[in-house]
């Protein structure tokens, strides 16, 4: 009985020693890399935003100049999302929105899109999707330039009827054999633009937090 107790205690202490050692190593690495990780994450985010909002259009800290938008039917979102605001010399220049097209061929398609202050689209990008590879995935920029077809489009020029794929009598291209995916994307972008029209004023409001960080 004593033997068992001793073995139990000994083993436990041994293991504790090793785990304390391990935790220490981990902790120090964590602290050493924490800032670098934050920086890389921000850089990556900025890279994505830059694709649809060129750096020339803003001089503010766009990563921090955000507005939380609650779930919205027009955006297709079901929770809070962030809108990033671009300002040039204090003037509102563009806003980056997140939107979800719920009716892709195989589920939701998550988009981000930039709308300029004048209501023109700065650009659209697909963040995630589950469309059939080789068929519906031409909405990705890496697969096809199709998504660039949205650049510069606005509801001022295209009326509701135009926000459809050509097969349905609209203005947007599609690839034969895969019409559901572009339909979903076009529809979602149009709705996001409507949202922008309706909420334009609210979107650019400088909230207190932003003021603080801007200082």
């Amino acid at each position: 009985m004593r033997r068992i107790a001793r073995s139990t205690l000994q083993t436990a202490v041994n293991l504790v020693f090793f785990s304390v050692l391990a935790t220490a190593i981990l902790a120090s690495t964590y602290f050493l890399t924490r800032d670098a990780i934050k920086k890389s994450e921000d850089a990556e985010k900025l890279k994505l935003i830059n694709q649809i909002v060129p750096p020339a259009l803003f001089d503010n800290d766009i990563i921090r100049d955000t507005l939380s938008i609650p779930a919205n039917e027009l955006l297709g979102t079901e929770g809070d999302t962030l809108a990033y605001r671009a300002r040039l010399k204090g003037e509102d220049s563009a806003v980056v929105l997140e939107s979800i097209a719920p009716d892709g061929y195989s589920g939701r398609i998550r988009l981000i899109l930039a709308v300029r202050a004048n209501g023109e689209l700065g650009g659209v990008r697909v963040v995630t999707h589950k469309e059939t590879p080789g068929l519906g995935d031409y909405i990705e920029l890496t697969k096809s330039p199709w998504i660039k077809g949205f650049d510069g489009k606005s509801r001022a020029v295209y009326k509701d009827a135009d926000w459809k794929v050509k097969k349905d009598g609209g203005q947007f291209d599609y690839m034969a054999g895969a019409t559901i995916t572009p339909r979903a994307v076009v529809k979602a972008v149009n709705k996001a633009l409507i949202y922008f029209e309706q909420n334009r004023d609210k979107l650019f409001v400088v909230n207190e937090a932003q003021k603080e960080s801007a200082k």
Binding site: I4, A12, L15, S19, V20
Partner: peptide
């Protein structure tokens, strides 16, 4: 970590 390793070590040693 300490808690888990104490427990597991004890079980293993036993």
């Amino acid at each position: 970590m300490v808690g888990i390793s104490l427990l597991l070590g004890a079980v293993l040693g036993y």
